[in-house]
Amino acid sequence: MERSLTQRALITALGWGIALLLFFPIFWMVLTSLKTETGAIATPPQLIFRPSLSSYIDVQERADYLRFALNSVLISVGGSVLALAFAIPAAYSMAFHPSPRTRGTLLWMLSTKMLPPVGVLVPIYLLFRNAGLLDTQFGLIVIYALMNLPIVVWMLFTFYKEVPNEILEAGRMDGARTWSEVWFLLLPLTLPGVASTGLLSLILCWNEAFWSLNLTSSGAAPLTTFIASFSSPEGLFFAKLSAASTAAVAPILVFGWLSQRQLVRGLTFGAVK
């Protein structure tokens, strides 16, 4: 479309202005993390200063960031893999061997996602306490897998729906069994979809704060718990707080940037083509 120069300049300014506005809190967090503690609370805020990494070193020494980060990676990956392992066969049979109840089952599964976790917090807490699962990585992996299962099944279902049934039938003619049909035909065909489903699940697990705050204390605690501990009076150390926050967010942020294109496909449930 033809646009006058002023229109183009206006759109550029608006687009960049809004992008920077939305990004500003993150930028400010990184900036503050590089200040000294006195510099971080200077009024008016410092814009020019000598950056230092001392806050990051302090955080690692006091709270052992790496242990929490390792828990986060382990639990997010574990939870997502477990969810996919359950969801792939479920979505397969719903997409290719639908029954009259499939549609109802799908909608019902999605509606279970709307039940607030607090509704079942007490029983789960007591179950975990009695089973010795409180503050274990395994306990959180199971919870996260179950938590994301409805969305994961839904997404996989919409991706599988796009695969023509004839391809699978041809495989069956050649004597493929159900498992090899899923493994050698369906999975390669829908790999982008499975990947974006896994990505979303990973992000949701990484950022999940309700179950991790309530079910872990120290041993299996992921980064969300690590960060929440900085909201106590300790949190008044702004530079350390910012350093801890930056360290907790950086891995998933970079991961998100790199995978945003794949992610969009999954997030829209195939509804936006």
């Binding site: 939305l22 990004f23 993150i26 400010w28 967090m29 950022n207 704060a209 909201s231 926050s245 991961f255």
Partner: peptide
Amino acid sequence: SPFFVMPTVAALI
């Protein structure tokens, strides 16, 4: 970018 920031960190910032 804000979508990838965990809720606890968003709240703290």
